[in-house]
Design a protein around this nucleic acid. Structure first.
Lengths: 343, 343
DNA sequence: TGTTAGCACTCAGCGACAGAGAGTGCTAAC
DNA sequence: GTTAGCACTCTCTGTCGCTGAGTGCTAACA
């Protein structure tokens, strides 16, 4: 739906004022603080129109207006201006990504912390599916009777591993052979890209070690088990600083949700599917009742060509969208880069 | 300090009532709810005495009494009765520890979650120092030019690893030799138990690979870097359910602290040093101003003989001590057992 | 026809105030 | 040493009225 220029200006002013004050904004304040060039009375008329059209709402008759979901939506889609990360923020980000980290988990935890710190909201990160990252090499390290460590080196030089069982009688030679076969089949590809033929070949070749193979593939795939995805939440307590969560019961319900990995996973997964870069999900668009006062800014990070994980910032609907979008975008780029280039 | 029997009964009743209601308790209520066999007036006299002696305090003149830190201390040291975990709780615990887990981190995260769930308070866990666990075996797995994966199998069959740099020109043979030497020196011992001689021998033998060796020892030791210790917090949001934290700003300050690993580490480290089994730290005894309304029940878990990590439950001072103590004790035993016996 | 000044009206928020209720300490009697 | 009785204290709750910010409507103006 279209909107004439003055209405846009009014809407923009209301949103920006409300974002910074968290108080309903009235026509008089608006006229005083923003140079709209018209009188409060005129603004009142515009506001009444905007309310009828669903862009604004009024907490009660004698209060000012606050933006409705539709208003925020129009703002982020049309009115919001681009925003560059400040040198300070850029430094802070560089600091994290220039460090030498070989554990993906550690990197992601730091990413969550970084996003929370720079945005002052909460940050959510879902770890990558191993099955979606290209594999550089596989090693099978014998540990002790009946167990081995399956070590995976992924694209960026990151290491993932898991203990697997194997028949006790497997010899070193056999282990070498198995690991050779796995290497041959997997090197340079992602598990999900494996053709049926390749898998069949693998099964044929390694039929004797069926249990070991299936554990390996489970580890690589993990697609059936979303709980297998590692979830990192940074700065959950930031929510407590927001005036919309002055109510303890309300904020408790939210924090409880954020402690459930499954939920965080869902939220990030549902938000902004297939969006180009950064996606914004506002209020009721997040399908959790506890989050109707929140918005979510999400993005997808990749390794090479493959989509592998998601990161997001959760804040009040009354969020500094432009700033958050720029930070999320920035961090996503850096993270993808680091995961591709390595260490 | 000693206390006559009736005073003890009064103190006990007040604490137990306050624990369950979070309201100051008056003489009349006390006489009605607990069979103390004396009139409110008598109880009032006892309460006045207890207040003078510092066991109780009065929020304001016309309110009942609440326990002071000293009162809680007397209670947990003298009055508290033992408590057994219920079958339900026992089941819940068994469920976690009977699962097959090969990653220490995963196990500890689950432990934190479990403690939080069963106690309904927040749980803190500090991961073990690798340097304090006995080592069953070491492997060095070549990854790619200049990097190797150092794999450690600890006492209980748990696996820890870290990427280390090495000179590019190291051959497979040499790697085997290094790993052989490491194995010989380390197997069956803890790093901190290594004698100067053993270390010197190691340095002598592996002088050519000095950087690799020092990285290895750093990884094993980590004693300089407490941030290296992994910290897990479970159910931080449980605090929000406590009436003493109805105030958002207050609870925010607490939650902010709990997000800092260093702080959690400090708290657990300071509490109950050298106590036999479960230690209780009350109010001001925790040296953080934000936690003066909290108590902490901590214990140390071990692998074999070695003390290696700590776990604790953080709740309001008004905590169900007996229940928490039994749960912490129970979980500590199970955890130690699992870490010693393995997987 | 769009804009603005003026005005009556609405309603949350705040402070003052009074009454209820829970609890205390003191005194005197048992 | 214990208890009943009583005056007193102080928080909590609800009511009331005022204030101020904000609105919508109307009528005048450009």
């Amino acid at each position: 739906m279209w909107m004439d220029e003055r209405k846009e200006k009014v809407l923009q002013a209301i949103i920006e004022d409300y974002v910074s004050t968290a108080e309903p904004v009235g026509s008089r304040t608006l006229a005083r603080k923003y140079r709209l060039g018209v009188s409060p009375a005129t603004i009142r008329n515009e506001m009444a129109d905007l309310e009828v059209q669903g862009y604004l709402e009024q907490p009660h008759t004698s209060a000012g207006r606050i933006p409705a979901d539709k208003g925020y939506r129009y703002y982020v889609d049309t009115l919001m201006e681009d925003h560059e990360a400040t040198p300070d923020e850029q430094n802070r980000i560089a600091q994290v990504f220039d460090r030498r980290l070989t554990e993906v988990d550690h990197l992601l935890r730091e990413t969550a912390r970084l996003l929370a710190e720079t945005t002052h909201y909460s940050a959510l990160v879902v770890g990558p599916r191993v099955g979606r990252t290209a594999i550089k090499g596989v090693r099978l390290v014998p540990l002790e009777e009946g167990r081995a460590l399956l070590v995976l080196v992924t694209e960026g030089g990151f290491v993932e591993d898991q203990v697997v069982d194997m028949p006790v009688e497997v010899t070193m030679m056999e282990l070498q052979r198995i690991s050779g076969v796995l290497n041959e089949v997997l090197r340079g590809r992602t598990v999900i890209s494996l053709s049926r033929d390749a898998l069949a070949a693998l099964h044929h070749e390694l039929d004797r070690y069926r249990s070991l193979l299936s554990q390996t593939l489970d580890f690589l795939d993990q697609s059936e088990a979303p709980e297998g995805d590692r979830v990192f939440v940074g700065g959950a307590s930031r929510m407590l600083a927001q005036p919309e969560f002055r109510n303890v019961e309300k904020v408790k319900r939210l924090m409880d949700l954020l402690e459930e990995e499954q939920v965080v996973h869902d939220i990030l997964g549902a938000a902004g599917r297939g969006e180009p870069r950064v996606a914004i999900t506002i209020g009721e668009e997040i399908h959790y009742r506890e989050m109707t006062d929140c918005s979510l800014v999400t993005a997808t990070y990749r390794v090479g060509e493959e989509t592998i994980g998601r990161i997001g910032v959760l804040g009040p609907k009354r969020m500094e969208y432009a700033k958050v979008v720029s930070l999320v975008d920035n961090v996503t780029q850096r993270l993808s880069e680091k995961l591709s280039r390595g260490t």
